[in-house]
Design a protein around this nucleic acid. Structure first.
Lengths: 219, 219
DNA sequence: CGCGCCCTTGAATTAAGTCAACTGATGTGG
DNA sequence: CCACATCAGTTGACTTAATTCAAGGGCGCG
C-alpha cells in the first residue's frame, strides 16, 4: 500500500506504556510496526476492560480519523514499535487514491466485527470457552500475518490482563488455563501460546474465523 | 443528506422478521425509516446474542458495503420500515460527494464505539447495572432522534431478548428490572421504557454518553 | 372457556468471585 | 554470595451472583 511512502515517525513503546489516553484528541494515527497494542476502557473504579489486540500491520486507532475525542485508550502489550502518520496526510491520500480509503474503511469494519465477536464471547460463553476463543483468534491472526513459529506465537500478556479482556477474575483465568492445559488443547506460559490441538481448541471456543474476513486463510 | 434522493424501495418488516441472515451476500444496504432493528449472532446451539439496536435514521448493515458475506444477522424488533439502497448507487454517491462517504464512515465508527461499550457493559458490570446502561443508551439515542415523549420511549422488546442482549438469563433480567423499579430509577413494562430518575439510572449503569459522539446532546 | 405466551416468583444448584496463603522466579543491596 | 523484597502465578476454602428448574399468574385470542 502507498501508506508506506507517507511521512511518518516511528516510536518505541515500553510494555504497558499508553500510546493514547481516553479524552485525547490525536492529530495522528498509528500503525503497529512490531509487537502488540491493545485498546481498553478505563472504568470509574480504576479497573480496565481490554477491548481488542492489534498486531503488526494493524491501525488500532483509525477511529480517530473521523471522531475527535477518544472514548478509549491504546497501550502497548509488551515492547512495541508504532509508526505515526498525520491525519492530514492520510486524508490527502484518500482524496488522491479512493481505493486506499476504501481499504482502510474495510479494515475498520473488520475491527467492528471483532468487537461484535467479543460481545458474544464475553456474554455467552463459559470461562474456558472464552479463553479458547481468544487464543484461537490471536493465534489465527498471528499466523495470517506470519508471526507464528510452528504451533506457538508470542503473547506478552499477563493473566490479570487476560482476565480484564475476558471479564474474568484472575483466579478463574488461572483455572481456565489449567483446564486447557489438562485437556491438551493449548498451553499458555510466560508470554507464549502453544496450540496443542487446533480443532479441539476451536471447538471448545466455538471459533469460526469467518468474522475475520481474511482474504487468504492461514489454515 | 443526499441519500434521501437515491432510488430506494421501502419495505415493512414484521416483528422478529429477519432482514438479513448470517452468510448472506447482500447487494443493498438498509436505512431504518421507522421502528427498530437489531443485529445478532446465531450461536451453534441455536441461541442468539443481540449485538446492537438501531433506530430510525440508522444504517444497521453499512458493513456489507465493503465486506461480502454477513457474519451476523439483522432483524426487526417490533414492526419496522426499512429503505433499501443498492450498494452501486451508494458507491457512486461516495465518488461524487466524498463528504457523504466520510459521514457514513464516521457513523460506522460510532457503531464500533457502541460495540466496545457493549463489551465493557456485558463483561464488567452487574446485572442491574447492565440493564441500566442499556436503558440509558437507548433512551438517550431515542431522545436525540426525537423519538421520546416526556420520559418514556417505545421499546418493543421482550425480557428474553433483553437477556440475549445483556448475557443474562430470563430470571435475572426480571429481577434486575424489579430492582430498577423498586429503586425508582426506571420502569420497563409491555414495550415501553419510562425513566424515573435519569441521574440515578446513569449513575447505576455508569453511563457516560461520550462514546456516542453526538453533535448535539439531548440533555 | 381453555389454550398459549409471556411475565413473575421461589428454591435449589452451580459457576465464578473473593480472600488469603503459598510458591517460585527474578532482582537488589548489604 | 546470601538475605530479602517483589512480583506473577498457583491453589484452596468460602461467599456470592447468577443460572436452572419448576410452579404459578395474568392476559389476549380463537
Amino acid at each position: 500500500m502507498e501508506i508506506r511512502r507517507l511521512p511518518c515517525s516511528v516510536r518505541e513503546l515500553d510494555s504497558h506504556e499508553d500510546f493514547i489516553r481516553q479524552g485525547d484528541r490525536p492529530k495522528v494515527s498509528a500503525i503497529v510496526v512490531e509487537g502488540m497494542l491493545a485498546r481498553y476502557h478505563l472504568l470509574p473504579n480504576g479497573a480496565r476492560q481490554y477491548l481488542s489486540f492489534h498486531l503488526a500491520g494493524d491501525m488500532p486507532d483509525s477511529q480517530c480519523l473521523f471522531i475527535e475525542v477518544m472514548d478509549h485508550a491504546v497501550c502497548a502489550i509488551g515492547k512495541a514499535f508504532v509508526a505515526s502518520v498525520p491525519h492530514r496526510d492520510l486524508m490527502k491520500l484518500f482524496d488522491s487514491r479512493p481505493k486506499v480509503g476504501a481499504a482502510i474503511w474495510r479494515e475498520t469494519l473488520i475491527d467492528a466485527a471483532i468487537f461484535r465477536e467479543a460481545i458474544t464471547n464475553n456474554s455467552a460463553r463459559s470461562a474456558p470457552a472464552r479463553m479458547a476463543h481468544l487464543f484461537c483468534e490471536l493465534f489465527y491472526r498471528s499466523r495470517a500475518s506470519g508471526l507464528t513459529r510452528d504451533d506457538t506465537c508470542i503473547l506478552p500478556i499477563g493473566l490479570n490482563q487476560l482476565g480484564e479482556a475476558l471479564g474474568l477474575s484472575l483466579a478463574t483465568v488461572n483455572r481456565a488455563l489449567a483446564n486447557l492445559r489438562d485437556t491438551d488443547l493449548a498451553d499458555f506460559k510466560s508470554g507464549s501460546l502453544t496450540i496443542r490441538n487446533w480443532a479441539g481448541l476451536a471447538d471448545c471456543g466455538e471459533f469460526n474465523p469467518r468474522y475475520l474476513h481474511l482474504r487468504r486463510e492461514p489454515f
